[in-house]
Simulated assay, not measured.
Amino acid sequence: MTPDQVTPDGAGTPTDTHFGFRTVPLAQKQRMVDEVFHSVAKRYDVMNDLMSLGLHRVWKDLLVSKLRPPKSERPFALLDVAGGTGDVSFRTVEAGGAGTRATVADINGGMLGVGRERAAAKGLADRVEFVEANAEELPFADRSFDAVTIAFGIRNVPRMDKALAEMRRVLKPGGRCLVLEFSRVDVPGLDAIYDTYSFKLIPGMGKMVTGDAESYQYLVESIRRFPAPEVFAQLMREAGLKRVDWTPLTGGIVALHSAVRI
């Protein structure tokens, strides 16, 4: 059982999970998450800039820097799970050489549509592929990718353990798995400021920019429900990944988790 799954009676098969601060049937969470991202897809990237004060760009650049796509023509295949609008994939192929390719896998067709439009505008449509896929059941062969990433998406997956196991399955031996996700603020004083900003300002910001405050209320709550770094690291180990580590960024607002398939 992952930290996101609960049983009302404390025993038996997990039947419920968390959707923000609410408890919902496990089978319904994916549909509810889909509705959130369908609602905000067109303005998702604008809101990322506003919510993070542009820092999400720095965090993603750090992820790609740790990924180190080869500068040569040597083939390098990235799978970006829950990659939606393509941010991490674009950064990766732009940082790598001619042999670097990326596949964006996302369950949300609206987000993928925005990603395809962005790829065409950037002239990257021939290097970045978009595939509608569930993170818990990836439609790719074993040992297909040199690296797998997921940025700010793992907390929205109903069964994180299944997604991590799938990410390991499609990795080549020696391939790296990188997970960028919100974490636990570890700077005294910053935690209170961060809570006020998150709960008081972000939903209102979402209302102004996307016309949807409720979706951003969920996103803020989902950040608070995400397990602490050491707990998530253990989930990665249980999925069969090795050399698990993490680096806190910006006072612990975000953590970059790293592991490899042996």
Results as ranks from 00 to 15, higher is better:
T13H: 14
M167K: 05
M32N: 04
A233F: 02
T100K: 11
P173T: 09
E73P: 00
T2R: 14
R74C: 03
L55N: 10
L26H: 12
G20L: 03
V81G: 01
S198G: 11
R159T: 11
P227A: 07
D80H: 02
A77Q: 13
L26A: 15
V185Q: 05
I154W: 07
K207R: 15
G115P: 05
R225E: 11
A163I: 03
K162E: 15
K122H: 15
D34Y: 00
D9M: 09
G189W: 09
R243C: 02
I223Q: 08
S222H: 09
T103S: 02
L55E: 04
D186K: 13
G96I: 04
T23S: 13
G123K: 11
A82D: 00
T100Y: 07
I193P: 06
V33A: 10
G174L: 01
E221S: 07
V231I: 13
D106K: 00
L50I: 13
L78M: 03
R243T: 10
T13S: 13
R243F: 04
A119D: 10
I253E: 07
E221T: 06
G109L: 08
M208F: 14
H18T: 12
G97D: 06
A11K: 14
V170C: 04
A119R: 12
F76Q: 06
V128W: 08
A255Y: 08
A239S: 12
A233H: 09
P70A: 03
G252P: 02
Y197I: 07
K200E: 14
Y197G: 04
E129T: 14
G153D: 01
F140Q: 07
T250G: 06
T247G: 00
N48R: 04
L124M: 14
F76V: 00
R159P: 04
V93F: 07
F90C: 06
V209Y: 11
D61A: 13
A151I: 01
P3G: 10
L79M: 01
L112G: 02
H257P: 02
A213P: 09
S198K: 12
